[in-house]
Computed example of a mutant assay.
Amino acid sequence: MPHSSINSSEIPSINNSTISNYEAVASANPSLITTFSETTPLPHSPWREPVSGSCSCPYDFDKAGRMCGGRSAYSRPGGSQPACYQDD
C-alpha cells in the first residue's frame, strides 16, 4: 500500500534550545531513552533488515546494489503488499 509523502510544513523545527532540552533529559535519564527505543518501535520503522536482490520493500536493494525505493512492490500500485514497516 503506497504511503503519502510528509509535507515539510508538518515537520516541527528544531533549534539549539530544543536540542539542549533533549540533551538535558537524556543526561538526567539515560535509561528512559534506552528503554523507549528498545521496547517501542518508531512509527513507520522497517519491519526487517534490507534484503539484497529483492525489491519487496523500498529499503531493499536490487541485484546491482541500488536501493529499490519507488521500484519496490510495496510502492507500486497493484503490486503485492508486503509488510515492510512496523505500522503496516
Score class of each variant (00 low, 15 high):
D62F: 06
I14R: 00
Q86W: 00
G79Y: 08
H44M: 14
A26S: 11
P50S: 11
D62A: 08
S9G: 01
I6F: 04
E38H: 03
D62W: 04
H3R: 10
R48A: 15
G79L: 10
G53H: 13
E10D: 14
I14W: 06
G65V: 15
A24T: 12
S37Q: 05
S5G: 09
N7R: 14
G69W: 01
I19R: 00
P41Q: 02
S52Q: 10
A83L: 13
S20T: 01
D87W: 00
S13R: 12
A73Y: 11
G70M: 10
S8L: 07
G65T: 14
P2C: 05
G78E: 10
E49R: 14
G69H: 03
F61Y: 15
P77N: 08
A24H: 11
A64N: 14
P30A: 08
W47M: 05
P2N: 06
H3E: 11
S13G: 07
M67S: 11
E38V: 00
T40K: 07
S52D: 08
S54M: 09
V25T: 12
N15M: 03
Y85I: 07
N16P: 01
S13P: 01
P43E: 03
G69F: 06
F36S: 01
S56K: 15
C55A: 12
Q81H: 07
I33Q: 06
S56F: 13
P58A: 03
P43W: 01
T35G: 08
P46K: 12
T39Q: 07
H44L: 13
Y59A: 00
N16F: 00
N29K: 09
E10S: 07
P12F: 05
F36A: 03
I6S: 10
D88K: 02
P43D: 02
A24L: 14
A83G: 00
S37P: 00
A64H: 08
S45T: 08
S45D: 14
S27E: 12
I19A: 00
S54K: 04
I19W: 03
E10V: 06
R48L: 05
T18W: 01
C68K: 08
H44Y: 15
S72R: 14
Y22N: 04
C55E: 13
S9F: 15
S8R: 04
Y59M: 05
H3M: 10
C84T: 12
I14P: 02
I11D: 05
N21I: 09
D88P: 06
L42G: 02
C68I: 07
Y85K: 05
G70D: 14
V25K: 09
S20H: 03
D88L: 02
F36Q: 01
N21C: 07
S17Y: 04
S31K: 05
P43Q: 06
E49I: 07
L32M: 11
A73L: 15
E23I: 08
D60L: 11
E23L: 14
T39P: 00
I14M: 06
Y59K: 04
G65K: 14
S75F: 13
V51M: 12
C57Q: 13
P77G: 02
S31W: 00
Q86I: 09
H44I: 08
S80C: 02
A83Y: 13
S37T: 04
T40C: 03
N7L: 12
I14A: 11
S56E: 15
N16Y: 01
